[in-house]
Design a protein around this nucleic acid. Sequence first.
DNA 1: ATTCTACATTATAATAGTTCTAAACTATTG
DNA 2: CAATAGTTTAGAACTATTATAATGTAGAAT
Lengths: 138, 138
Amino acid sequence: MLNNSHYIDKLRSSGLRPTKQRIKICEILFDNEKTFHFTINDLVKKISKTTNDKISLATVYNTVHAFKKKGYLKEIPINSDQSYFDTNTSHHHHFYDENQKDLIDIDDADVEPVKINTRIPGKKIKSVEVLVKVEDAE
Amino acid sequence: MLNNSHYIDKLRSSGLRPTKQRIKICEILFDNEKTFHFTINDLVKKISKTTNDKISLATVYNTVHAFKKKGYLKEIPINSDQSYFDTNTSHHHHFYDENQKDLIDIDDADVEPVKINTRIPGKKIKSVEVLVKVEDAE
DNA sequence: ATTCTACATTATAATAGTTCTAAACTATTG
DNA sequence: CAATAGTTTAGAACTATTATAATGTAGAAT
């Protein structure tokens, strides 16, 4: 167990009680230099690998949704049989490897800003996401 | 029942037997000036509204997948609990209204071409999709 | 036309991801 | 320390989708 006080503060300041389950999930998700992409299933596996106190599946779902709502996670739009989340909430885009079923960040500098020259009246833009699907070159 | 011969030809020429279920689904999907977006559930409802010969759910799935494989439909990546399909297979992008859970085409002329200045070795780009999520402006 | 065969359709079961439920638990407040 | 409001939990329920295997049908061969 490392220094968790910043997670405790972060959780408390966003109105989430700092339970040990949430702190554990924070450690797994955010104690890392680089951001990563995961499915709920990935996260569950990682939890069981790094702790003996198991966290219930329902709690994993609850926590991921709570973190998403607070803006600590982004959900990535892909048509897949499961949802992908991203710890990198800054503006960036993705490759999706259809063979490996793997997501890869596209550095924002490598994408020209996407200009949308039309609007929907009464609606505001929440996000602009580019998904580049790739497959094995033959 | 209108003139279906072109659907029969289309199906046959792509190696799909022109069954009455497939022809019916062609009529619903393609007998329309403008393209539309739908989920399997939408399509099932539309079928039961326009015909008395019910088509089994499995057939609807099979047919949509077959049409997608042949390139008559596109699947649109959204993180949603169900898959969205589009009869417009030309290059274009989408708004997704998160309040109405509704998809809206973005005319390709209204989006500056998306330039991706990086590649993944050994992979080729299959598609580049822009999804603009919108919500009610307050 | 009739028969044959591969492809299609069907109802239903199975599967998988996700959400719901309601009881037990725990962080925080007074 | 007691009260309470939020949290976790196991398991059931739900929903979209896929698989199964029996029946049906289009197209080819006869």
